[in-house]
Design a protein around this nucleic acid. Sequence first.
DNA 1: TGTACATCAGTGAACGCGCGTTCACTGATGTAC
DNA 2: TGTACATCAGTGAACGCGCGTTCACTGATGTAC
Lengths: 193, 193
Amino acid sequence: MRRSKTDTARTRERIVETASQQFRRHGISDAGLSRLMAAAGLTHGGFYRHFASKDQLVTEACHEALLSLTDGLEARIAGKSPKRALSLLLETYLSRTHRDQPATGCVLAALGSELARSDAATRDAATNGFLRLAGLIAHQLKILPPDEAQDRSLAIAAAMVGAITLSRIITDAPISKALLRGTKKYILRAARK
Amino acid sequence: MRRSKTDTARTRERIVETASQQFRRHGISDAGLSRLMAAAGLTHGGFYRHFASKDQLVTEACHEALLSLTDGLEARIAGKSPKRALSLLLETYLSRTHRDQPATGCVLAALGSELARSDAATRDAATNGFLRLAGLIAHQLKILPPDEAQDRSLAIAAAMVGAITLSRIITDAPISKALLRGTKKYILRAARK
DNA sequence: TGTACATCAGTGAACGCGCGTTCACTGATGTAC
DNA sequence: TGTACATCAGTGAACGCGCGTTCACTGATGTAC
């Protein structure tokens, strides 16, 4: 039966939030709409009242998840010195907690290679999220001229994403840990003048 | 009808080679066995004469593709000075050619986030390939003590994989290029004492 | 070296299953008077 | 403010489709004598 406008809006948000977790946990292709809607407490039939297609949901889920990630990181470093802020960003992003909980972590690390094959709208959302992440880093590189800080922050953000992705693939625990530790050290070196 | 042993071995190799390209092009989940076998010039029914399951093919395809990648890179830098070799590695791996041709490129970049959700055997194959890639880099960091060269090479290899993956996601061509260029510059900095 | 038979690579139909999407239906919400 | 009716969120069955896997069958290859 029909629901109130606020209920409808809440349901839609719940679907997007549930979807973004399911995608990150199982991958985009392997997260089916039926299971996903059930996880949101609904049946699959109602899906198309909210979204035109699965692709649209993917786009929105990536957008929201990346917004939430960068907002969270931004809040975490608010008011800190650039040096301390960069260290905090790296500790948070390159943590074992992040590695072990893909469902609530960075979409770029959880879905990177699938995003590379996604449609333009989803890749746009991913690109914007990536640039926001890089921007957070660029702000901590104030010792450098702006152009160089921009270029370097792109490389640093990609290195962070690559490190988490690979730390999840690697079957040898000490090596996985060494990769995360090494990446942090190596980025801190790269942040120096 | 039955085939000779050498024909059978050749067919098996052809399936693995075709599969590794199809996986890198379409993703593991989205590369179906029927299409894949057709691409290898066979019908899908014969698949299980060669492999116990799709998972086994995935493992072998990743193993072979990573072996081929590291062999190719190794041949390319043979006899070069460490400095020149590192630069060559980076130019080759971080090229627009590599970015634009995932089907024949690095499996870790093409399938990274899917590999993180794959079974142990496939993740073992990916881990070994990653360590071989890192090893190639470590050999060019002879100015550093071995422990540090190992840690740093892990971080560098992950940064390379992350950069290619993200360069494929990014919808803005200049930014994609800036990421590849920036990553090379930043790794060369990190390689210095 | 030649013959008889077992092996098995490859074919194509078939299996059950879950996929994304559509649709008739329900009944509460929203709207127009 | 109350009433009549249109809207539409959510349900559950159904659609065609491709998936991974199995199987009976074919006939050339490999093996045993």
